[in-house]
Design a protein around this nucleic acid. Structure first.
Lengths: 202, 202
DNA sequence: GCTATGTTTTACCAAATGGTCAGAAATACG
DNA sequence: CGTATTTCTGACCATTTGGTAAAACATAGC
């Protein structure tokens, strides 16, 4: 069962084009605000042809979310309980900011899903995500108690890292409207680094 | 011209019901993802009756955004250049957090609009918003230079205040999934206060 | 070349969507 | 009360939407 033929060259190319187009559209308009026609056009395919590769609109969206979740938690997984506390946290901050810079559409896809009440990933939030955060929060709490970093609420520390880094991807339009910079990320990186260094230094 | 009759009691009641329902729906699904039927049902009215009070879906949305922008910038306007620097900034932080706690739907409506590229409020962003931020950033820069607060990039300071406070409204579902708390705001307030105090103290 | 398989298009469908309109029902007011 | 105005409904419409079916077209392998 679940026997699968290898994908042809055309299948690989078109599946990728569809997922790329869908990411572009879904990340901007959310699931309900996006249409198959939009996605098909962005992918350079006809709508029926698009539905030859994916069985439904839901299936495309689900596929995107699944791939997203895998990479989304990775930076936090990499935080090493046995490393140097401040370095580990600052390394996490930097990896998170890099993700916002390099994958802004993924960030917005996630933001859209959460804004809509996370109907499709709520289980992942209370399951995999919560488990991971609980684990890493415990590590951070230990670091705090041991005096390696300043005493902070570890959960809200993690939330603040998410908020700050993702803000530059999700609210990109606003940031660019206020600044005139083409690329706000260099200055953002410096600022965020200072902020957490000052917060956590003992 | 533009002569307007006073609103009847029924008009006031129904207009308010519609705007409340529309805020609920638009803030969750965004403009394109929301339907008039949804809004009408949430308001307890029929769709044609809804369109008796507002000429179109766009008009309802536009009305919401207009009201929103007025109150949205208010906390920053109130930051007094002649006040005590640290108090003024921390007061702004607190007002902003109160807005997220008391008006989470407004926060999500705004987030949705920005995520979609701010098609309807882009002018307000580069106009009114930018002007205000430029002005207050200059004030903060002066405070920095005068040694009243630690040296920081004033623009990114403002962005970080937005990011942190709005995060608790916009990503409410995620925050609640990770914590088990009914109301994450008390702890968030304490944390955010500590964070900015440590960042800005000289 | 021929056939089997993979890919794409054309034509179509039922449901949902934003919106209109004529008239019915309710309300205000003299 | 009666009439003028406001409020509401049901029936309707054109367009868009997610999705299907069948046949045309392309390609791979022999």
């Amino acid at each position: 069962m679940n026997e699968m033929k290898p994908l042809t060259r055309i299948q690989r190319k078109n599946r990728e084009a569809i997922l790329g187009a869908a990411l572009e559209v879904f990340s901007q308009y959310g699931f309900r605000g996006s249409t198959l026609d939009q996605i098909a056009q962005a992918a350079g395919l006809s709508k029926p042809n698009l539905l030859y590769y994916f069985p439904s609109k839901d299936a495309i969206h689900a596929q995107l979310l699944e791939s997203l979740l895998k990479t989304w938690l990775d930076p936090l997984y990499k935080m090493d309980p046995d490393g140097e506390p401040l370095d580990e946290i600052m390394g996490y901050v930097q990896r998170k900011l890099e993700m916002s810079r390099d994958y802004p559409r993924e960030s917005r896809l996630f933001a859209n899903e959460i804004l809509q009440g996370a109907p499709r990933i709520h289980d992942a939030l209370t399951g995999e995500l919560k488990t991971l955060v609980d684990e890493k929060a415990a590590v951070i709490a230990d670091w705090s108690k041991a005096g390696k970093i300043a005493p902070v609420d570890p959960y809200h520390l993690i939330f603040s890292i998410w908020a700050l880094t993702q803000h530059y991807a999700d609210f990109d339009v606003q940031v660019r409207a206020v600044l005139d910079a083409d690329d706000p990320f260099p200055a953002a990186g410096t600022y965020i680094d200072t902020l957490f260094t000052r917060l956590l230094s003992v």
